[in-house]
Design a protein around this nucleic acid. Structure first.
Lengths: 130, 130
DNA sequence: ATAAGACCTACTAATTTAGTAGGTATTATA
DNA sequence: TATAATACCTACTAAATTAGTAGGTCTTAT
C-alpha cells in the first residue's frame, strides 16, 4: 500500500500554485523547482483540470491556477484524481465477495476505507500551501 | 493506493485457520475453498512463518496453525509482512525530502501513516475469525 | 510404500508505473 | 509580425511490480 509518484508529484506541484485565484504559475517553473519531468507533470495536470481542481491560461504569461479557493479543495479529491480510486476492492465497495457468501475480511477494508477517506477529506489544500 | 492480492489472499487464508493453536489446516484445503493458487499461497505462508505469525507441521495431517493466540495478532502485522512497509515515502519516515528544505506535503503523509497504522493495529485476527 | 503435506528455486506473463519524444495551438510582447 | 513561452495532445518505451506457473525435495502419518 503506497501512493504512486503521481500523487506525490501532483501534491508537491499544487502547493506551488498561487493561493490567489487567477494568478497563473507555469509548469516549467514547477518542474524546475521540484525536479519533476515537465512532460510528466503536464499529464498529471490534464487530470487535475478535468477534475476541475485547476484551470489554465494559454500562451506567454499563462499557466495553471486553482479553480476554486484552496480551502475548498481536499487532499482526498487530489489523491482520487491522480491515484484512481483508493482501496478499490470488491469487498470495499460493499459487494459480497465472489469467493464466499460472507467475506469475513470485508469489515477490515470497509473500516479502513472510511477512515482514510475521512482523514484525507478533512485535509484542505489551504492547510499545506503555507 | 491499493493493497495487492497478497494481502487479500493472505488475510482470507488466515481466517480459515483454526483459532485453536496447534490444530493444523493444510494450504491445499484453503486454496480449494478460496480459489487461490496453491503455489502462490505457499509463498505467502513462507513470509507469514518467517514473521512468526504461523507455524507449520510437515507430513500427512500437517498444515499451518497460528503461532500465537489470534487476539495477539494484528491485521497491521499481517499487512506489513505481506505488503511490505506501507506508505514508505522519504516524507513519511521523517526524513526531510531531498527536493526541498522543508516539504509541505510531509505532514499529510505523516498523519495518514499514523492513522492507518493505528486503525490496522487495533484490528486483531480474532475479531475477524468468527 | 504411499500420499499428503510443507518447503524450495527458477522462470514467465501480465499489469502498472514512470518517463520520453515529438509534435500543435494559443497568446503576450518585443 | 516574428518569437518564445505556454498549455495541450498522442504515441511510444523502459522499468518495476505483481501474479502466477513449473517442477521439484524433504518429512511424516497411515
Amino acid at each position: 500500500m503506497n501512493f504512486s509518484t503521481k500523487t506525490e508529484y501532483g501534491l508537491r506541484a499544487l502547493v506551488k500554485l498561487d493561493p490567489k485565484v487567477k494568478s497563473p504559475v507555469s509548469l516549467a517553473q514547477i518542474a524546475r523547482s521540484e525536479s519533476i519531468s515537465l512532460a510528466y507533470l503536464e499529464r498529471l495536470f490534464v487530470l487535475l483540470k478535468k477534475a476541475k481542481i485547476v484551470r489554465a491560461d494559454l500562451g506567454v504569461g499563462g499557466g495553471y491556477y486553482l479553480a476554486r479557493p484552496a480551502k475548498d479543495i481536499s487532499v482526498l479529491e487530489i489523491v482520487e484524481v491522480l491515484e484512481g480510486k483508493i482501496l478499490s476492492y470488491a469487498c470495499v465497495k460493499g459487494k459480497v465477495c465472489a469467493h464466499s457468501a460472507s467475506c469475513k475480511v470485508h469489515p477490515v477494508w470497509q473500516k479502513l476505507y472510511k477512515e482514510v477517506r475521512q482523514t484525507l477529506g478533512k485535509m484542505k489544500l489551504i492547510n499545506i500551501m503555507k
